[in-house]
Write a protein that binds this DNA or RNA. Structure first.
Length: 321
DNA sequence: AATCACGCCAACCGCCCATTC
DNA sequence: GGAATGGGCGGTTGGCGTGAT
């Protein structure tokens, strides 16, 4: 990792490296107690040792006191982050297990980008780890044009959200009530974002449909990929038909193998989206869905931004048989 | 062998919230 | 009530490693 750039085995920086590391002022104000210039950049093993020793003596918290009492030239934030992400006990290192991946997917479908809350459900994992994992996964699947969530997770998350929204008053147009329901805020944000996207996209739909190279491939590949996991043989078979067959476009876990009934789920979810979006936007959505179906463009909800986007916004229109 | 693209991940940054005074 | 402070969170950046070309 980048540590090796700055730190030697004994944790001592070279002159140039130390000067470089000390040159900039940090986000914590640049100088600490008594005008001490706070260091930025990768942590050395010596610094780690100091921090560990400090926490052993004084416990976690009061991070700004670390610099004052231990002589560490790091701001409190940096210390907290280092401790939380790397030094605290019971941290689980290494790749995520299939169970963890599955849990992350489910949690993200329900919570959106609430990394800290997700981390609370994954003992030994940090929010930063989960965030990095998810962002990497997003890039892969975005390139692949694949949905971020398995259908069953999408459906479950949407149904739960819809229940919550009904309770909190979305169907009565009570925006205040909706906003007071933090549990569904991520999903609602995504829906509203999607609504805007749909609204603006309507103006460009003809342009989209005239350019096949802009088509999101997800709609066309999903129904096939959900039936069978990737294999070299499958890749040869499907290369001519599918845009994406790379194994890294798939989940490490095997949810894609459980994709039976996907079309059915899509219809359900589409109805749910219509319900949630309301008449005006849902009519737009229906029109676009119909247009996509007839033109086989597959233009759907998968076209919106991928970040902070719970399940429903990853869904695409059904693929015509 | 050189170059490039991409994945991975540690760390930083800025904002926000809760608490304290 | 409002300012100051500490801490938490999510987004983003930057560097290294690695595989592909």
């Amino acid at each position: 990792m980048s540590h090796t750039t700055y730190e030697s085995d004994d944790g001592v920086l070279s002159k140039d490296q130390a000067e470089s590391a000390l040159a900039e002022e940090g986000s914590c104000g640049g100088s600490g107690n008594g005008g001490v210039v706070l260091k930025k950049g990768p942590w050395t093993s010596a610094e780690d040792a100091i921090l560990i020793e400090y926490v052993k003596k004084h416990g976690e918290g009061n991070w700004n006191a670390v610099q004052k009492h231990s002589g560490l030239s790091r701001c409190g934030k940096s210390c907290r982050l280092r401790w939380a992400n790397h030094l605290r006990p019971n941290l689980k290192k290494g790749a995520f297990t299939q169970e963890e991946e599955q849990l992350i997917i489910e949690l993200h479908a329900k919570m959106g980008n609430k990394w800290a809350r997700m981390a609370a459900h994954l003992p030994g994992r940090t929010d930063n780890e989960i965030k990095n994992y998810w962002n990497t996964r997003i890039k892969r699947r975005q390139r692949a044009g694949l949905p971020l969530y398995p259908p069953e997770v999408s459906l479950q998350a949407l149904q739960e959200s819809q229940r919550g929204l009904n309770i909190s008053g979305i169907n009565t147009g009570d925006k205040g009530a909706v906003e007071s329901s933090p549990r569904n805020s991520g999903l609602l944000d995504a829906l509203l974002h999607e609504a805007k996207t749909l609204s603006s996209a309507k103006n460009h739909s003809s342009e989209k449909s005239s350019n096949s190279s802009t088509v999101t491939p997800g709609c066309n590949v999903k129904s096939e990929l959900t039936d069978q996991a990737w294999s070299p043989e499958r890749e040869k078979e499907t290369t001519n038909r599918l845009d994406i067959t790379r194994p890294d476009a798939l989940l490490a876990s095997d949810w894609l193998e459980q994709g039976s009934g996907y079309i059915k789920d899509q219809v359900i979810i589409t109805d749910n989206i219509v319900t949630l979006l309301g008449d005006d936007l849902s009519s737009d959505y229906k029109q676009m869905s119909a247009g996509a179906s007839t033109s086989n463009q597959g233009w759907g909800l998968s076209s919106c931004a991928w970040n902070n986007m719970p399940a429903v916004c990853q869904m695409s229109v059904p693929v015509p048989a």
